[in-house]
Every structure is written in C-alpha cells, then in structure tokens.
Amino acid sequence: MKRSGDEKLENLDDQEPEAKKSKENEKSGKFGPEMRIIPIIDKNLFQETVMLTKCYVIAIQNRKITGELLRILPEIPSELHHLRRVDNKSSRILLHPEEKAKDDPALWSKLKNLGVQKEHVELIDIPAVRPLTRLQFDWAKEKWATSYPRNPELEATINGTLFSDQEKDQIRKWSDRVEQKGCIIVQNDTAIASSSSQPDVVLGHSAIETVQELAKMEREDGSYLATDCDVFVDKEPCGMCAMALVHARAKRVFFNKPAKNGVLKEGPWQLHLEPSLNHHYAVFHLDKTENKNFEEKFVCC
C-alpha cells in the first residue's frame, strides 16, 4: 500500500547519490538497509481533497450592500462554521444549504429591496468539512473561503520533514538497539528504562514490563511516567502494551516490525487514533525491509 506521505519520505531518502550515501553510512556507523520512518496517522490526513456539499450563494453586484446582506441573511448552520460568509475572491455570499427551502417570501422581499434578483442566486459545491491540512486547504479554498487549523508539526509529518538528519541518526540507533532488547524508553537521546520479552512470565511483554521498570527508576524530576519520552519497541505493541503506553503518557512510539496482534498499524482499529482515549501518542513504523509481507511472522510478546 502506498500513500502520498510514504512517497515523499522515500524520495527524501533517495535524494543522495548511492556513492555519497554509503560514505555517510560509514561515517555514522550505519550499515544494513535504508530505514524509512513511516508516520502512522489518520488516513484522511493524506487525502488531497475534502468532501463537498451544495449550497445556494448570491453573487454580490454592489459591494456596498454586503453589510446589509449580512444583517438580514439567515444564520449558517453550525456544521458549516468553517466557511467564511463572504468569498471575497468571487464576490459571493452564502445564502443557505441546498436542503433549506429556497423561497422564504419575507427574506426575498428584503433581498429585492437591496436589489438582489433571483438570477443572482446560484447552487454551487462548497467544502462540507474543515480542511485538516495545507494541501486540503489549498484545494478547498478554490471552492469557497474556509478556515483550517494550522499545525506545523502535522504538515512536517506529512511532508516527511519532521526529523532533522541528526534525529534520524538517533532514531536509527535506537531502532537497531531495540532489536536485541524488546523495548527501550528514551528521554533526550538517553535510555532510561528497558526490558526484554519474558516468555516464561505470564503477560511479561517487553513494553508493559518496561513501563513498570520506568516506574521503579529514581528520576531527577520525580516523574514515574513516560511524558516527553520516545518509546522504541522491536515489535508493534499489542492492545495490552499499547494501552500501557497510553497509561504511561508516552509522547511517541516507534516500532520496527508489524505484529499479528499489533493495534497501531493501518487497519480496522488503531488504538492511538481512538478518539475516546484521554491521551494520544504519535506512532512511527521504522521500516528496514524491502519485503512487505512479513506482518504475520511477529507477535508482541
């Protein structure tokens, strides 16, 4: 499966010529296959368009009456509050959504007094929901002036520019180390707790065990949670481990290998995207393989 975000990340990695790349790898001690950092975010964020809905609009003939129009026009329903009332670029003003009755005699007599004719009214497509990203915003605003929540971190995540080269090297280092270890909790590029999987211990999965290890550590700030921490796991966490990391307030979770019982990868239910939870961490898949079909081989343990 290829999404627009993946593509951009791949391109970034492919920018350097091969020769230079291998030299860089020698310098930083990196060997083995390239690693892609794949953000696992809501699929809708990779969409380039938003849903549309039909709405009646009035072409403003005389800008001086805009203020008057704003006073007499019915309120816009709350689900369309992301839209500006007036689209300045096209000199048009929102009348009401299609499903509302077009002919309100009282309103029309007021409109006629202002010189508005029925032929000035048009039924057009407008953005039905608030755009979530810059790309969606740029597309939607061509239809109608709309607001969108600026979120630089999200934009960088989508564009594959979230991590600096130094951060990528650090992520690579922890990704390689956690292959032997199971789970490592990292704060400021320092490991503060880790644990291996313990197959003989009932529910002794490495991630939930590491959260308990962290609780036992004496830390300078007195904290026992993973707030502001990155959690590296070799295998994608199962429901128990993924929720333990929510209880621990982890900031970001990085996993190497998708797991059969994992609940973070793209699928019917992704725990970190569940809206009813009171804490949400960011999730990244650190992909070092060419082979896309290894999912069934691993389990969170």
């Binding site: 128990m240 481990c241 993924a242 929510v246 209880h247």
Partner: peptide
C-alpha cells in the same frame, strides 16, 4: 476492565 487489562485477559 480497561483496554490494557482486557487485551491481556483475552490473550490468556
């Protein structure tokens, strides 16, 4: 049980 505990109990 919460998601963490329930997932563990189902696995067991």
């Amino acid at each position: 049980p919460c998601i963490m505990c329930a997932a563990g109990l189902f696995e067991l």
